[in-house]
Design a binder for these strands. Structure first.
Lengths: 139, 139
DNA sequence: ATCGATGCAAACTCTTTGCATAGCA
DNA sequence: TGCTATGCAAAGAGTTTGCATCGAT
């Protein structure tokens, strides 16, 4: 699992500066085991940095994605981010309510590959959506 | 597989009018075995109806989605539509180049369900992306 | 004739970009 | 000091909506 220390190291290794904003964004993701959108990051950051701008949120989310610090998925046409999980390949259950995730240590690609001879496979997506135990009885 | 006849029937059954535009949109999807975006529908329709507006494209795509005439998926944050396939549950390979699809008659949910006791599963998505045989050597 | 469908224009959401300034190394 | 990160403002893409009119039934 990615964390603050590793993330800052990766920033430095790739010649990016470590700013307060960058540090705080990582801190936010460190404590949120779930997919959040740019809005949520902005809400968190505005408290710490009243002058925070959305541009910086987006720019850094994009940077973190490139540096493999964050994972991305598109939910309802909106990008959602979370701290990068373990390096082993896996998929996720994602709660429609709170965005929290549960790892699914399985992958259907073995079977799918057999059905796709002659096809050039570049990527795949497997996600399960619903309500996590905590969110089932709220509302 | 959904077709023009069934689609018009479903429109009437749900008290929607059958207009030329609606008929022609269905005809377009009938001959395209692939996921296309609103832009592609618009391009096709503009030839037949020079006064065609994007609003009508979007309104009808949305209507067809609700009536289960079209399937939807979000690719790169953009909605893509195709004619509803066979009623048996299945998934798709989707070509990143032309949007053409190949059915994958398999579903990882049996195994996933076992891992998600206590979770309320509402939906899931499994898609494989890449290049179909026809698109591999173009470019 | 009635009521839903459409075109027009505007607005809305999410996201990206150019530029001058602020701030890390 | 030098160069990157940031805020501001503006723009861009995709999509939705209110309203007057058009058109299917």
């Amino acid at each position: 699992m990615m964390n603050l220390e590793k993330a800052l190291k990766r920033l430095r290794e790739n010649n990016h500066k470590v700013t307060m904003r960058r540090r705080d964004i990582i801190t936010f993701f460190e404590q949120e085991n779930r997919y959040v959108n740019a809005r949520a990051v902005m809400d968190f950051m505005e408290n710490l940095h009243p002058s925070m701008s959305f541009d910086t949120v987006y720019r850094n989310l994009h940077l973190y994605e490139q540096l493999n610090i964050l994972e991305v998925t598109t939910l309802d046409g909106e990008k959602h981010f979370r701290m990068k999980c373990s390096p082993e390949h896996h998929h996720h259950f994602i709660c429609n309510d709170c965005g929290s995730t549960k790892k699914l240590p399985l992958c259907p690609m073995d079977q799918a590959t057999e059905l796709l001879l002659g096809y050039d496979i570049e990527d795949h997506k497997f996600e399960v959506y619903g309500r996590c135990p905590d969110c089932q009885f709220t509302l």
